[in-house]
Amino acid sequence: MGKILVIISSGKEAKEKAMTGVMFATNSMKFGWADSVEIIFIGPSQDLLVEDEEFRNFVISNIGEYKPLVCKFLADSRQHPKDKLEFARVEYVGSIINQLIDEGYTPLVF
């Protein structure tokens, strides 16, 4: 089946696109469309998580126990409130993205 890396980078101008990425990732996990799924929020989508309560609640309600990754550099540099990202793993994601691709994950960007 393969492994999927869902990178969500769309912000408030393309909120529906970001929501589509969340749904694709969660349905891939739920229905076994892939052997493994990783989700990373980066750039404008990370701002959307912090600033848009509706979007954040949508993500949290769909991902269940899974903890997606969000970029630590952006969280620190944009001073994102830690409580808005408690549901996620906050790490430097650049090298993680490269590692996952090296491990055979197919990146899909929303």
Score class of each variant (00 low, 15 high):
residue 1 M to K: 13
residue 1 M to S: 15
residue 2 G to C: 14
residue 5 L to D: 07
residue 8 I to S: 00
residue 8 I to R: 04
residue 10 S to P: 00
residue 10 S to H: 06
residue 11 G to H: 05
residue 12 K to H: 14
residue 15 K to V: 15
residue 15 K to M: 14
residue 15 K to Y: 11
residue 16 E to N: 12
residue 16 E to V: 12
residue 16 E to H: 09
residue 17 K to L: 06
residue 18 A to N: 02
residue 18 A to L: 01
residue 20 T to H: 10
residue 21 G to I: 02
residue 22 V to Q: 01
residue 23 M to R: 05
residue 24 F to K: 02
residue 24 F to M: 14
residue 26 T to W: 01
residue 28 S to N: 12
residue 28 S to I: 04
residue 29 M to W: 00
residue 29 M to R: 10
residue 29 M to T: 01
residue 31 F to A: 08
residue 31 F to W: 11
residue 32 G to I: 12
residue 32 G to E: 14
residue 33 W to F: 13
residue 34 A to M: 07
residue 35 D to Y: 01
residue 35 D to N: 15
residue 35 D to T: 05
residue 36 S to N: 15
residue 36 S to A: 14
residue 38 E to P: 00
residue 38 E to F: 00
residue 39 I to N: 01
residue 40 I to A: 02
residue 40 I to D: 00
residue 40 I to F: 00
residue 41 F to L: 05
residue 41 F to G: 01
residue 41 F to I: 06
residue 43 G to D: 09
residue 45 S to Y: 02
residue 48 L to S: 06
residue 49 L to G: 07
residue 49 L to I: 10
residue 49 L to C: 07
residue 49 L to T: 06
residue 50 V to Y: 02
residue 50 V to D: 10
residue 51 E to S: 10
residue 52 D to G: 03
residue 52 D to P: 01
residue 52 D to L: 00
residue 53 E to N: 13
residue 53 E to Q: 12
residue 54 E to N: 12
residue 57 N to R: 05
residue 57 N to A: 06
residue 58 F to Q: 09
residue 59 V to H: 01
residue 60 I to A: 00
residue 60 I to H: 02
residue 62 N to Q: 13
residue 63 I to C: 04
residue 63 I to G: 13
residue 63 I to D: 15
residue 64 G to T: 05
residue 65 E to C: 01
residue 65 E to P: 04
residue 66 Y to T: 05
residue 67 K to P: 07
residue 72 K to P: 02
residue 73 F to G: 15
residue 73 F to P: 03
residue 74 L to Y: 15
residue 75 A to K: 08
residue 75 A to C: 10
residue 75 A to W: 02
residue 76 D to Q: 11
residue 76 D to C: 02
residue 77 S to N: 14
residue 78 R to T: 08
residue 80 H to T: 08
residue 80 H to P: 00
residue 82 K to W: 02
residue 82 K to C: 02
residue 83 D to K: 10
residue 83 D to M: 06
residue 84 K to Y: 14
residue 84 K to P: 13
residue 85 L to R: 06
residue 85 L to S: 07
residue 86 E to N: 06
residue 87 F to Q: 15
residue 90 V to C: 13
residue 90 V to H: 11
residue 92 Y to A: 14
residue 93 V to S: 14
residue 93 V to H: 09
residue 95 S to G: 07
residue 95 S to C: 05
residue 96 I to R: 07
residue 97 I to E: 06
residue 98 N to W: 01
residue 98 N to G: 08
residue 99 Q to H: 11
residue 99 Q to V: 05
residue 100 L to Q: 03
residue 100 L to N: 03
residue 102 D to I: 12
residue 103 E to Q: 15
residue 103 E to K: 15
residue 104 G to N: 12
residue 104 G to W: 06
residue 104 G to I: 09
residue 105 Y to I: 08
residue 105 Y to H: 11
residue 105 Y to E: 13
residue 107 P to I: 12
residue 107 P to W: 09
residue 107 P to Y: 06
residue 108 L to K: 03
residue 108 L to N: 02
residue 108 L to D: 03
residue 109 V to D: 08
residue 110 F to T: 13
residue 110 F to G: 03
